Amino acid sequence: MALLDPSRDDMIATLGETTGYRALKWMKEKMEQDEVGRQILQEQPLINTQTLDVDKLGELPEGTFGKQYWKFLSKNGFSPDARLPVHFVDDPDLYYVMLRYRQVHDLFHSVLGMPPHMLGEVAVKWVEALQTGLPMCALGAFFGPLRLGPRHSQKYVSTYLPWAIRNGRNARFLMAVYWEKHWEDDLHQLRKNLNIEPLPDEEASKTYLD
């Protein structure tokens, strides 16, 4: 089920934890090589409604990253508390890396401008697979497109797939971004700073920005 539907959090969570030890270790090492990544590992910030005032994000100016994230949550009826806890990772450091990955997933959606429909999920999974090496991300990226209809399959092959691969390879290591410090940043400038290429599809961008 997790292979065919990358929107199934429960299946993906179990698969990710039981197959991702080497990737988690590599992610931790890569975060340790980055100044901001080390700070994240030391401070271990959490993203939930106890640490984040979602309503305040909604009051931020249009075009800010925080406003974009608020739109993502409010439009889709999501909450930062919805991400599942980690159950099958015993190492405390790797436990946090998995938890952090899980909690910033919606932030990846927001900064990339990807809705949480199947096409958007598959695109984000490609970026995550190339950035993290997590097997479950790669499996979701490979098998998720099997659920796309003909119209979305065409857009996926012509636009979303090459765009996602470029961002996965060229963007800064997104796990080493202290996202909580960027709520007030201009979204377009943040993308430039992270070397994220906007999707060359105006209709997809309008999903959040309108």
Rank of each mutant, 00 (worst) to 15 (best):
M1E: 15
L3C: 10
L4K: 09
L4P: 02
D5Y: 06
D5L: 03
P6M: 13
R8T: 08
R8E: 08
D10T: 13
T14F: 04
T14Y: 07
L15T: 01
E17A: 12
E17V: 13
T19N: 13
Y21W: 15
A23M: 11
A23Y: 06
W26V: 05
K28S: 14
K28F: 11
E29I: 12
K30V: 03
E32W: 05
D34L: 13
G37R: 00
L41A: 08
E43M: 10
T49S: 13
T49L: 01
T51P: 07
K56Q: 15
K56M: 13
L57A: 02
L57R: 01
E59T: 05
P61R: 05
P61D: 02
P61F: 03
E62H: 10
T64P: 02
G66P: 04
W70I: 02
K71L: 14
L73A: 14
N76H: 09
G77P: 08
G77L: 14
S79D: 13
A82W: 11
P85G: 11
V86L: 10
V86K: 09
F88I: 05
D90E: 15
D91N: 03
D91F: 00
Y96H: 12
V97M: 03
L99F: 13
R100N: 05
Q103Y: 04
V104D: 00
H105K: 09
F108D: 02
H109Q: 06
H109R: 07
H109P: 01
S110E: 11
G113H: 11
G113F: 10
M118E: 08
L119P: 00
G120T: 13
G120S: 15
G120D: 14
E121S: 03
E121V: 04
V124H: 05
V127T: 11
Q131M: 10
T132N: 03
G133E: 01
A138H: 05
A138R: 01
G140T: 11
G140S: 14
R147Y: 13
P150C: 02
P150D: 10
R151P: 00
R151C: 01
H152K: 12
K155S: 10
T159W: 04
T159N: 01
T159G: 04
L161H: 12
P162S: 08
A164Q: 00
G168Q: 00
G168V: 00
F173N: 03
F173Q: 04
L174Q: 00
M175N: 02
A176Q: 06
K181P: 11
H182W: 10
H182E: 13
E184H: 06
D186Y: 10
D186V: 09
D186P: 04
D186R: 06
Q189S: 08
Q189T: 13
L190E: 01
I196Y: 00
P198T: 06
P198Q: 04
P198D: 02
L199V: 12
L199C: 12
P200C: 12
E202A: 15
A204F: 02
S205T: 14
T207M: 05
Y208M: 09
